[in-house]
Write a protein that binds this DNA or RNA. Structure first.
Lengths: 150, 150
DNA sequence: ATCAAATTAATTGTTCACAATTAAATTGAC
DNA sequence: GTCAATTTAATTGTGAACAATTAATTTGAT
């Protein structure tokens, strides 16, 4: 009486993705510890190092995050001296995020540290490429799916 | 004066993984909505459908989660009628998680719903395999790295 | 010029993850 | 047998993600 059919691959895949992501988080938390940055904060800083100044809205579009997530995260970055938050003069609704001089100074140090840790990971260029490829395939299919579900 | 070197691949990869994981979460949240299960709750139920009864400790070993995460999650599963929690008679420290009859009944329905959604995703067997392969490569490297960092 | 619709952040409430600590029960060394 | 060490859950506190709502400002139709 096979009341317990074997769990199918998608079940395993869902767990693999769940599990790998947690380990990935842990890896970045460790790498970023010297700078008192969390992984999501680092992702936000990456975007700001490239595009600042940005409004909360614009940053949210890059990261697919809303103000419910960003407002507290940005307040933490502000209190740790990474960024400044100020209302735009031309439009009082928008809050403009700018990098502090200190954040600009630390940019290369942070990159170096993260890149070093990443090198220690020992992913070959082929493995990196395969990972990148897989991620974009998954993302693409998930985007399509999510559109159909609206 | 290249004060702004281009952001390297690992930076992109970190964002890809971060982003893909969020979309994956969203996919499962949608698929599981009819059952009032969250993605982490589903992962826990997957394990319990296979191995219950389990202690909190044992479940945590499967999922790499501690009681700080599991206790509140399991209380929610209990309040929604999926599981029961009771102290072991032989060892009053351990809490034994068992499936309710209702949870056993719903098992196949949940699987069917999730598998259907997953089929709609339209991943080819090759893509699934590639994804699975990538995840296990990443996990393996991350495990090694995390060991060296202790 | 006015006022309804929209846009932008902030806030509130729920869930999850993890570190650190606490409380209770069990084990083991003596 | 006693008591220190260990084990197991629960608790506390911080950070994150997301849905829903709120507050303030701006836009646009009339």
């Amino acid at each position: 009486m096979p009341k317990t059919k074997p769990i199918r691959l998608d079940g395993q895949l869902c767990f693999q993705v769940y599990s790998a992501n947690k380990k990935f988080n842990h890896f970045y938390q460790q790498a970023l510890k010297p700078f008192d940055l969390t992984y999501p904060q680092y992702i936000a800083m990456l975007t700001l190092w490239q595009y600042a100044p940005l409004s909360v809205k614009q940053l949210g579009e890059y990261l697919h995050l809303d103000s419910g997530t960003l407002t507290p995260l940005l307040k933490r970055l502000e209190s740790h001296g990474w960024i400044t938050r100020s209302r735009s003069e031309s439009d009082e609704r928008t809050v403009v995020i700018e990098l502090t001089d200190d954040a600009k100074k630390k940019r290369d140090d942070v990159f170096e540290r993260v890149n070093n840790c990443f090198d220690v990971l020992g992913l070959t260029p082929e493995e990196k490429e395969a990972c990148s490829q897989t991620m974009s395939t998954i993302e693409q299919k998930l985007d399509l799916y999510n559109e159909t579900q609206i």
